[in-house]
Computed example of a mutant assay.
Amino acid sequence: MKKFNFRLFALVLASLVDEAILFIIVLWLLPLVGIELPVWVIILLAAVFLGIGIAIYFLLSGKPTLGFESQIGMRGITETRIARQGTVRIGNELWSAATTGEAIEKDTPVVVINQKALILIVSRELPS
């Protein structure tokens, strides 16, 4: 049995709500104030709403770019001196980090080589 996909459910629900709002506005509210839209405009608006919903689904269905599991191999820079433990910046996030080798000074490029609980194990990034 497949696992329930909340994102897909939310997308379908949001698309249905969008379409319902569109048709309420176009078919009920606009004629009340004397505005009539051609059928092709209504179809175009429905297609735009559907396209936006599909785009949002694909944006949400990808793996997160940052997260604890994806940190190995990522490059960052030290925010503090790391003798036993310190802080590194990877992307826009700060992480607790440790080194297995010698101390790493502040503002040194590092690469994540392992993880231990919530601490990233880093080493100096070798120049290319």
Score class of each variant (00 low, 15 high):
Val39His: 15
Val33Trp: 10
Gly67Phe: 00
Leu11Pro: 04
Leu59Gln: 11
Ala20Asp: 07
Ile52Asn: 09
Leu27Ser: 09
Gly53Val: 00
Ile24Gln: 06
Val39Ile: 14
Ile35Ser: 03
Ile43Cys: 09
Gln71Tyr: 05
Ala20Lys: 06
Ile52Phe: 15
Ile35Thr: 07
Pro31Cys: 02
Phe68Val: 14
Leu50His: 12
Ile24Tyr: 13
Gly53Met: 08
Val12Glu: 15
Leu29Ser: 11
Val26Gln: 13
Gly34Thr: 01
Leu44Ala: 09
Val17Glu: 12
Arg75Tyr: 14
Asp18Ala: 05
Ile24Ser: 09
Leu60Gly: 07
Gly34Glu: 03
Leu44Met: 10
Leu66Asp: 10
Arg75Asn: 14
Leu13Glu: 14
Ile43Tyr: 15
Leu27Cys: 07
Val41Pro: 06
Leu11Glu: 03
Asp18Met: 04
Leu16Val: 05
Gly73Tyr: 03
Ile54Glu: 14
Gly67Asn: 05
Pro38Leu: 08
Ile42Val: 14
Leu11Arg: 02
Glu69Asp: 13
Val12Met: 15
Phe49Ser: 00
Gly76Thr: 00
Ala20Val: 06
Leu22Thr: 01
Leu32Tyr: 12
Ile43Thr: 12
Leu44Glu: 10
Ile25Met: 04
Ala10Trp: 10
Leu32Ser: 05
Val26Pro: 00
Ile25Gln: 05
Glu69His: 07
Leu11Asp: 03
Ile52Ser: 10
Trp28His: 08
Leu32Ile: 05
Asp18Thr: 01
Ile56Gln: 07
Val26Lys: 11
Phe58Pro: 06
Gly51Gln: 06
Leu44Thr: 02
Ile21Glu: 11
Trp28Phe: 11
Ala10His: 09
Ile35Pro: 08
Leu60Ser: 11
Leu22Cys: 03
Leu13Pro: 13
Leu22Ile: 03
Leu66Arg: 06
